[in-house]
Amino acid sequence: MITISDVKKIFQTKNGTVSAVDGVDMTIKDGEIFGVIGYSGAGKSTLIRMLNGLELPTDGSVDVNGQVISKAKGRKLREARQSMGMIFQHFNLLWSRTVLENIQFPLEIAGVPRGERIRKANELLHLVGLEGRGDAYPAQLSGGQKQRVGIARALANDPKVLLCDEATSALDPQTTDSILDLLVDINERLGLTIVLITHEMHVIRKICHRVAVMEAGKVVEEGDVLEVFRNPRQEVTKRFVKEVAQQQESDDILDQYPDGKVLKLTFVGSGTDQPLITSLIRRFDLEVNILQGQISQTQKGAFGTLFIHLKGEREILDQAVAFAEEQSVKVEVMER
């Protein structure tokens, strides 16, 4: 569906050249929800703008659904953009137009007859859960409702790809979750490929199938969301995963429990259902103390981490650790 090949983007500024995107290769599959995450300045916004031709790469190519966007111009570029919808952080609605008129706007530009525009806009109002609000103006809507209008407008031309540029960053957590649920529903109903950029790992965790982590213009890590959560390799990825897990610093935990062993258990998929703690208590003469933990749902299953403290005879401790490692659980003995 989308192929990005050795893409680079260099900006000339009064202070010299800035390499916003530096040699990115990426393939996004048809029908998947693909996330690009990075902190400010990582290059993710520039990258997504190159997907619909708002920015042209300095080098490399961008192919979307068989169209080489990086070389398309004039009518071909306009046609290619009609196959892509885009939603923004700050909604970008027309404040002097009603909700229904905002949704119709892309169809109006495309020359679609008025009756067909109204029919399509009402269908999309129903899809995004805004029935009865067609005559309202953006100023009368909540932030979440405004973003729903933005999503409906982005779907007006029946795009094959939906681009989301920090689409939930301006929303509160509860509203964010409702918008993410809507995006998942749209992906499943319409088979739409969704590419979103964000600096929030919660967004990636909740709806994405795969993720690319960007830092300093480069993709430093990429893979299935569940695998990235289970085994983050780069420091920047570990920071993002930690934000979701909300874990204490391991040093702090070790300071509080100087005796015995502190284990970090990572559960993935069916492993989250295992009665591991119960088995440890029944099998071994140990004191087992649960320190902290959390289980999160991803699109491909559950991911969880649990810190436990084991206290007992050294030989029994070693046997308990070996037993835990035999289960479908990743075991890390925290070192002092």
Score class of each variant (00 low, 15 high):
61 S>G: 08
225 V>H: 10
129 G>R: 00
278 T>P: 07
4 I>P: 04
105 F>Q: 14
112 V>M: 05
253 I>N: 01
127 L>N: 04
94 L>D: 03
87 I>W: 00
308 I>M: 11
58 T>G: 04
190 L>G: 08
115 G>Q: 14
266 T>W: 07
166 E>F: 00
153 R>D: 07
11 F>Q: 00
108 E>A: 05
308 I>F: 10
303 F>S: 08
7 V>Y: 06
283 R>V: 07
178 S>H: 12
146 K>Q: 12
138 P>L: 12
312 G>W: 14
309 H>T: 05
302 A>Y: 14
183 L>C: 12
300 K>W: 12
251 D>S: 15
78 R>D: 12
149 V>W: 01
298 T>L: 08
302 A>R: 15
7 V>W: 01
201 M>Y: 03
95 W>K: 15
137 Y>W: 09
55 E>C: 02
163 L>K: 03
248 Q>Y: 12
215 E>P: 01
195 V>Q: 03
325 E>M: 06
303 F>N: 06
306 L>N: 07
272 T>F: 12
162 L>A: 13
234 Q>G: 03
23 G>W: 10
181 D>E: 11
3 T>N: 14
157 N>R: 04
20 A>P: 04
179 I>S: 06
2 I>E: 12
269 G>R: 10
109 I>Y: 05
74 G>R: 01
117 R>P: 08
133 R>H: 15
225 V>R: 10
296 S>Y: 15
72 A>P: 09
293 G>L: 04
257 Y>V: 14
99 V>K: 02
214 M>F: 04
324 A>G: 06
62 V>Y: 03
274 Q>R: 14
164 C>T: 01
90 H>F: 14
220 V>Y: 07
123 E>G: 05
272 T>D: 04
96 S>Q: 05
151 I>M: 05
124 L>K: 05
154 A>S: 13
285 D>G: 05
213 V>L: 08
185 D>W: 00
224 D>I: 01
290 I>W: 11
185 D>A: 14
218 K>R: 15
326 E>K: 15
268 V>L: 11
181 D>R: 11
203 V>L: 02
